[in-house]
Amino acid sequence: MSLIQCNNLSKHYPNKLALDNINLSLDAGAPIALVGPNGAGKTTLFSLLCGYIQPTQGSLTILGHAPGSKALQGVLSALPQDAELDPHFTIASQLQFFATLQGFSQADAKQEALRVLALVDLAESAQAKPKSLSHGMSKRVSIAQALIGSPSIVLLDEPTAGLDPANAKKIRQIVKDLSNDTTFLISSHNLDELEKLCDQVVYLEQGKLQQSVSIKASQATDFITLTMQVCDMDSLHQQLLGLNQVIEVKRSGDEQYVIEYQKQRNFELEQQILSLLAEKQWRYKAILKGRTLEETLFS
């Protein structure tokens, strides 16, 4: 059974077509990225999945159930965009109440609230009120509430937006650690971040599904992304084209080449590239096996 199944899904707002006839099937497993420019319909899709809004047309099921149905309580959780906790009550008391609603006893709910707060490094702020937290801390509390009861599916809408690098890394680590038991669907503009976390990428643009690709999909060709420091880029281009197995070399940005080549078991091409760089005394910044998500989506 598909984790998420969308059939001819559309959502019209009074002045806008937010989602246009989306057909999509996603399976449980590694984290899934939801990518697209502002206004592409990512948050609308999230809101439909959470049952916050109703589709104008088409159908949507999560594990075979309609969004908002009883069967999904405690199974699906989310970090909704711009949602805040009640400012009058402590964070722990609100998270504890959420856990109670999910079926935890009072004592277990208290423990669960502290457990998820500890996951986001906020155990010491348990007795604080939401108003006293910074934006980043509030975001982490909202992520903590999404982890109560270890749900099977967690939707994270811009989970690291507004977080400092250290905390953003921490959130990425949490997603990695929990992704064996939980399927995360993550919406973000940070392609580097998604690249590190996700396998499947869903790309939306102007309400339409443009691509649904797997980053690690097995194909006949492979890629190397070579980022250089100062060198003669045109000469490097010609030299790279002359290497064995190379199919195409594409310049990406001022200092970067994406080399497409026939898949091979050994590291022959990497060795050729390093020999070439050594011979010409060209200094490189990075050699990446594969393509960046940006390249995958927009090349």
Binding site: A78, E84, L101, Q145
Partner: peptide
């Protein structure tokens, strides 16, 4: 947006 936390549960 607090109702969104509740309607998930």
């Amino acid at each position: 947006g607090s109702l969104r936390f509740l309607t998930l549960r």
